[in-house]
Amino acid sequence: MMSNSPQEPIFTPEKIEALYFDTARQGETELLAEFIRAGMDINHQNHEGHTALILACYHNQLEAVKLLLEKGADPNIVDNKGATALTGVAFKGYIPIAQLLIKAGANVDAENNLKRTALMFAILFGRNDMAKFLIESGANPHHTDGEGVTPIQLAERQGDEELVTLLKAKNII
């Protein structure tokens, strides 16, 4: 005997959102493009404040990042911790994605909730090539975080003389 009660929808808004973010995380560009064509808000944020762009960047999905930026994803949206897509990329060391983000207008000196920048994360996690790229892209080596520490001081603490010299050479005070 069939029930007259309405069935629960197969794709609830929550399930659609989860699928959308999984698609970005896994770099499934064809399906991601379908979500966008179907009207999914490209800058929609999940409960952690992540966008599809932030997730694609963090998981090194270069083609998905290209697609999202081409379709108008905002590279300066911050998550619940105040981090942008560039912050995660700096931490991971994904220079090709950082190049795309900066070309698309990402703020190279955006601060997270602790006032740390992408350059600071690159230095903290030993991503020297990323740090050098960010410096060349105009990152401020004199920025002070919430604890009063600058990128130069972080590099000094890491004992990286080459990076310290490079940072000090960018005298933009």
Rank of each mutant, 00 (worst) to 15 (best):
residue 3 S to Q: 09
residue 113 N to Y: 14
residue 144 T to F: 09
residue 105 G to R: 00
residue 160 D to V: 08
residue 30 E to H: 04
residue 14 E to H: 05
residue 39 G to H: 04
residue 37 R to W: 11
residue 54 I to R: 01
residue 79 D to P: 01
residue 113 N to S: 14
residue 142 H to F: 07
residue 95 I to N: 06
residue 155 A to W: 05
residue 2 M to E: 07
residue 151 P to H: 08
residue 45 Q to E: 04
residue 34 E to R: 13
residue 82 G to F: 11
residue 43 N to Y: 02
residue 115 K to F: 15
residue 101 L to G: 05
residue 31 L to R: 15
residue 123 I to K: 12
residue 125 F to E: 11
residue 142 H to K: 11
residue 51 T to W: 02
residue 59 H to W: 12
residue 45 Q to Y: 02
residue 8 E to V: 15
residue 107 N to I: 06
residue 118 A to C: 06
residue 89 V to C: 10
residue 105 G to F: 02
residue 167 L to Q: 05
residue 148 G to S: 03
residue 90 A to V: 02
residue 142 H to R: 09
residue 91 F to R: 13
residue 145 D to A: 08
residue 138 G to M: 01
residue 61 Q to T: 09
residue 140 N to F: 06
residue 67 L to C: 06
residue 80 N to G: 14
residue 14 E to N: 04
residue 10 I to M: 14
residue 150 T to G: 13
residue 56 A to E: 04
residue 86 L to D: 02
residue 7 Q to M: 15
residue 76 N to T: 04
residue 170 K to V: 05
residue 69 L to C: 14
residue 155 A to F: 06
residue 28 E to T: 14
residue 62 L to Q: 14
residue 74 D to A: 03
residue 162 E to M: 10
residue 106 A to D: 07
residue 27 G to T: 10
residue 76 N to E: 05
residue 106 A to V: 10
residue 107 N to T: 13
residue 33 A to V: 01
residue 132 K to Q: 12
residue 120 M to N: 08
residue 63 E to W: 00
residue 31 L to C: 10
residue 79 D to I: 01
residue 30 E to D: 12
residue 158 Q to P: 00
residue 83 A to K: 09
residue 16 I to S: 00
residue 158 Q to T: 05
residue 27 G to Y: 09
residue 74 D to K: 00
residue 95 I to H: 02
residue 137 S to R: 13
residue 123 I to D: 15
residue 81 K to E: 10
residue 102 I to S: 01
residue 103 K to Y: 06
residue 164 V to N: 11
residue 22 D to M: 12
residue 84 T to I: 07
residue 99 Q to I: 15
residue 66 K to P: 03
residue 113 N to W: 11
residue 124 L to T: 10
residue 104 A to I: 04
residue 120 M to I: 08
residue 25 R to E: 13
residue 47 H to E: 11
residue 16 I to Q: 02
residue 74 D to E: 06
residue 122 A to G: 11
residue 97 I to G: 09
residue 149 V to Q: 14
residue 13 P to W: 00
residue 109 D to G: 13
residue 112 N to C: 00
residue 55 L to N: 13
residue 112 N to F: 00
residue 36 I to L: 15
residue 67 L to A: 05
residue 88 G to I: 01
residue 5 S to V: 10
residue 96 P to D: 07
residue 67 L to D: 06
